[in-house]
Design a protein around this nucleic acid. Structure first.
Length: 604
DNA sequence: TTGGCCGGGTTATCGCTAAG
DNA sequence: CTTAGCGATAACCCGGCCAA
């Protein structure tokens, strides 16, 4: 019995169990004996309300638990089922197909939110790879990969693959195609949580159940007024493939059917499949022709940005893609974390009082040259009105405190007071800064050296640090120092800026290992840009980049989906320009802006 | 000998409701 | 928004039958 039951799939056991339970209840309710005769009576009664398929299932369920079935009994049941089957021939309805035009329509409903992107991808991928609902449910990120414009979808187990040997379906997926875009976008959206399953619950990372898959797809169809189920996608794709001229064998392999018979129930008669050219028909055909299969990809009219980029490209002698990559590399905030900073107390404060209090505790240096100097650095924010002091970082070696004194909210008088206090703090040029700090000009020692062999250029802090074997990141330089809370990456950045000064003067020890922060650390900071891309660009292109730069901080906001994208996959993403679906107008403007900034920026 | 079809058994989806 | 359960049924496979 157990050996018998384990020979069947769990779903079968469940289904048969339910059938047997119902049969048992029906028989017992009528005071009949639980035997074959009663079962035939039950089947006869049932046959008035249900179809042949259900009868067959009841019969199979009975046979599973009753080894011996009499020959007349079996014949009786067969008669019942067959007569029912014949009767069904006239009423059977044609299965519904969802063809490519519907997919295109659903693509056009794509919106810039997670649910929409997931659901549209679900529809598209189910169609393209002929997925069953359960297969889509089980599909994991590791099962799909794009290679040479071909998407490989590995279906690990399936209804007709109970042993889980796995089959792979290949789908055309050119860079920039709808499917490619959908996949990439969804992948990026997922990358924060990094779930295993492609189609997962929006709240937790659990895979969607097959039932959810169907209801989601059903809802998508309803939204555009189309009747159909998830499985209709499989039918539709099979028929579309046939219409495109694929052979039966090819379609069978694509749809992972084991037998031609399994597949053939899907296929309808189709002129193309019978050797008649679609083109020849089209002149005469009016409504009923097979769906037209060629479709022009929408092209974004980038009349401003692309020519500009091409110019830079020539000037900088790199590929367009390289340019974009470099721009992204420059733009993307990459959180860093210095383990060696753990030994210090990093104290950010927005309160002037607290700032004075901590600052006051720094040891007054009355014995010259015993204590190391006070290391100071500043960060400012750029506003439309110009630059404003936002943060003064101090490093007091003696106490090991890094004070991040945030003054972005303070008035000009209050800021002046703070600067005055700092300037009063240590006598005899014991403030050390890197680069010119006009605010502390009277007192500070600037340790910024010249670049080797270039006497007119100053050395960058990064290079200075590199010279003493330290690797520091300057990625946060242009981030928003007026944010309510400084991100951890910002804190570490600001702290490192002053701590490294100590090491470059005294050769202390700094661990050089750098961990990448979780990208979840990032969040949008500013939202000051216009959403109308063309105007925005046209307007600012006439000015030169420096002005643009001073008006809009570089880290205003980065498109959510660009942030966590690893650079390795970035290279295939430059088609963002040529596809309006790929970015919302706002995101597009942000991305274009970043590029623009980079391409004409003297910074790099 | 082959290929299509049928019967029968197994395993999935559909459509709906109700409840997390 | 998602899932579970339920009754019904579609979809899938395989082996055997039968005609060519």
């Amino acid at each position: 019995m157990t050996a018998l039951s384990s020979a069947k799939a769990a779903s079968t056991m469940k289904a048969y169990g339910q059938e047997n339970e119902q049969r048992r209840r029906w028989i017992l309710e009528r005071g009949l004996p639980l035997n074959e005769v009663s079962t035939v009576m039950y089947l006869a009664w049932k046959s008035e309300s249900v179809g042949s398929g259900s009868l067959a299932k009841i019969s199979a369920a009975y046979k599973m638990v009753n080894n011996e079935v009499s020959i007349p009994g079996a014949q009786c049941v067969a008669e019942l089922i067959n007569s029912k089957k014949r009767a069904e021939a006239t009423t059977r309805k044609q299965p519904v197909c969802i063809n490519e035009p519907v997919i295109v329509k659903i693509m056009s409903t794509l919106e810039d939110d997670a649910k929409s992107e997931r659901d549209v991808l679900l529809v598209h991928l189910s169609y393209s790879a002929l997925l069953r609902a359960s297969e889509a449910s089980n599909l994991q990120w590791k099962d799909v990969r794009v290679k040479n414009g071909l998407l490989e979808v590995f279906v690990a187990e399936a209804k007709n693959d109970q042993l889980g040997k796995g089959r792979t379906t290949f789908v055309q997926c050119k860079a920039g195609s709808d499917l490619d875009l959908l996949l990439k976008r969804w992948k990026v959206r997922c990358s924060l949580k990094n779930p295993d399953f492609i189609f997962h619950n929006l709240h937790n990372q659990k895979p969607l159940s097959p039932s959810s898959i169907s209801s989601i797809v059903k809802a998508k169809f309803d939204a555009i007024g189309v009747q159909g189920s998830h499985h209709a996608l499989r039918k539709g794709r099979a028929n579309d493939l046939q219409a495109e001229g694929f052979s039966l064998d090819e379609i069978q392999r694509t749809g992972r059917w084991r037998s031609p018979a399994g597949m053939s129930t899907y296929l309808r008669d189709n002129p193309r499949a019978q050797g008649i050219r679609v083109e020849e028909m089209e002149s005469e055909e009016e409504e009923e022709g097979p769906p037209s299969l060629t479709r022009e990809a929408p092209i974004y009219k980038d009349d401003i940005l692309i020519p500009h980029l091409r110019k830079c490209q020539k000037r900088k002698k790199c590929s367009l893609e390289g340019l974009i990559l470099a721009a992204l590399r420059h733009i993307l905030l990459q959180g860093i974390y210095y383990p060696s900073l753990e030994q210090y107390d990093i104290v950010p404060t927005r309160s002037l009082l607290q700032g004075y209090e901590i600052f006051g505790r720094f040891v007054e240096d009355d014995r010259e040259n015993i204590y190391p100097p006070l290391f100071v650095d500043t960060e400012s924010s750029t506003t439309p009105r110009g630059s404003k002091l936002a943060l003064v970082s101090h490093f007091d070696v003696h106490s090991g405190i890094v004070l991040l004194w945030r003054v972005h909210k303070a008035s000009q008088e209050e800021v002046d007071d703070v600067i005055w206090a700092i300037n009063q703090k240590r006598r005899e040029e014991r403030i050390v800064v890197f680069g010119s700090e006009p605010l502390f000009k009277i007192r500070a020692t600037d340790i910024q050296g010249d670049r080797p062999r270039r006497p007119n250029e100053k050395m960058a802090l990064k290079d200075a640090a590199a010279a003493i074997g330290r690797n520091i990141s300057k990625n946060e330089t242009l981030s928003d120092w007026t944010a309510d809370e400084l991100r951890r990456a910002q804190q570490h950045y600001a702290a490192m800026d002053v701590v490294i000064l100590n090491h470059s003067t005294e050769n202390g020890s700094v661990s050089t290992s750098i961990d990448i922060y979780s990208t979840a650390d990032f969040r949008p900071l500013y939202c000051r840009l216009q959403t109308t891309t063309p105007n925005f660009l046209q307007h600012h292109l006439q000015k030169r980049s420096q002005q643009v730069f001073s008006i809009y901080p570089i880290d205003c906001i980065l498109p959510l989906f660009l942030l966590p994208l690893p650079f390795s996959t970035m290279s295939s993403n430059f088609f963002f320009f040529s596809h309006p679906l790929s970015l919302s107008p706002y995101q597009w403007s942000m991305f274009a802006f970043s590029l623009l900034l980079f391409s004409s920026s003297p910074l790099l």
